[in-house]
Simulated scan of single mutants.
Amino acid sequence: MPLLFSQNWLIKANSIYSTINSVCGVLAPIIGGFLYSFLKIQSILILNIFCLFIVIITNFFLTFSNKNIEESEKTLESTADKSNDLPKLIVVTGIIFNIGYGLTFSVTIPYLINKVFQIDSKIFGIIQSCFYIGMIFGASLFTLRVKNIALSYFSKIFYKLGGIFLLFSLPIFISLDLKFTTAIYIVAMLLFGIQASFFDVGLTSFIQKEIPQNLLGKYLGIFISSSKLFFLLSIFISGIIIDYLSYKSIFLIGASLFVITALLISIIAKKRLP
């Protein structure tokens, strides 16, 4: 992405990409189910191959900007001092977000809706879809609200995520009517999707801006693999907490984790100010 777009267009490009990705994530299962109702699985696989072939051809004609070695070395030297500890901080930030996401979204929320509150399966589908609607809305809103991304930007997101997790826990500790519980989870899912999109697009743009291009591929490989590893571990841990401790503690753990991270990022951001 940094090779295709200038710095002025980088945030907008990542936002558009995230919007398209979220829309496809919602529409793909619907389209797939519709096609599977009258096509054989072999025909769908052939269609997938054809789509991938179009993607390969499209990528072949993309024009990447050429940067000489001297420019790359200057970029590396100018960012070496200020970003010495920055890659480690970004990796930790991504890991913590994926831990909170894994603890709640994949196991705990479906468990609460289906087992504890026993909400209708159709309503459950609506609640789940609100997360992706929030991501679409958040990615579209991102370019309008965010012009520049600093380290303090992420502390604000983690504070908001902590508040959203407390909103998720509200029906657990306070006895509410089922309609109010459903409304709270719909609103919380929408807000969760918006902030998740803000975090995803913001962190991607921040990484592309702050990390030297000759280290970007290696760094992204480490970042993505470590984040996904902790995401899977958090799903496993959430099941253990539900079985052996209490589901009531998960959102409190997630909220505490996000607020502590927000405080640490705020402290580090102030130290990095000239």
Rank of each mutant, 00 (worst) to 15 (best):
G94T: 08
T58E: 13
I54N: 13
F64W: 02
V91P: 05
F53E: 08
S78D: 12
I69K: 07
L62I: 11
I95G: 09
S65A: 04
L62A: 05
K74W: 01
S83F: 02
V92W: 04
T63F: 00
K82A: 13
T75Q: 06
N84T: 11
I54H: 10
F53P: 02
L76C: 12
I95H: 07
E71R: 13
F60A: 12
S65L: 06
I54A: 10
S83E: 12
V91I: 09
T75G: 06
F60D: 11
V91F: 04
F61S: 07
V91S: 09
E71S: 12
E73F: 09
K82W: 06
V91W: 04
K67E: 07
V55A: 09
F61M: 09
P87L: 01
L62R: 07
T75E: 08
A80V: 11
I57R: 04
S65T: 12
I54F: 10
N66Q: 02
T58N: 09
F53Q: 03
K88M: 09
N66K: 00
P87Y: 09
F64V: 15
K82F: 09
E77P: 02
I57F: 05
I57T: 02
L62P: 03
V92M: 13
K74M: 04
N59L: 05
T93W: 05
I57H: 04
K67M: 07
F60G: 12
A80P: 10
I56G: 02
F64G: 10
D81H: 13
F64P: 12
I95W: 05
K88L: 14
K88E: 06
S78Y: 14
N68C: 04
D81N: 15
I57P: 00
I57Q: 01
I95E: 07
F60I: 09
T58P: 01
S72P: 00
N84Q: 13
F64D: 15
I56V: 04
V55R: 01
I54R: 10
N84I: 07
I90P: 00
A80I: 10
L76D: 15
F60H: 04
K88C: 11
K67F: 11
F60K: 15
F60M: 14
E73Y: 04
A80Q: 15
F53W: 02
N59S: 11
S78G: 12
K74F: 04
L89D: 10
G94H: 05
L89N: 11
K82Q: 15
G94K: 06
N68S: 08
N84G: 15
I90Y: 01
I56A: 07
L89W: 02
I69G: 01
G94N: 14
A80W: 03
I69M: 00
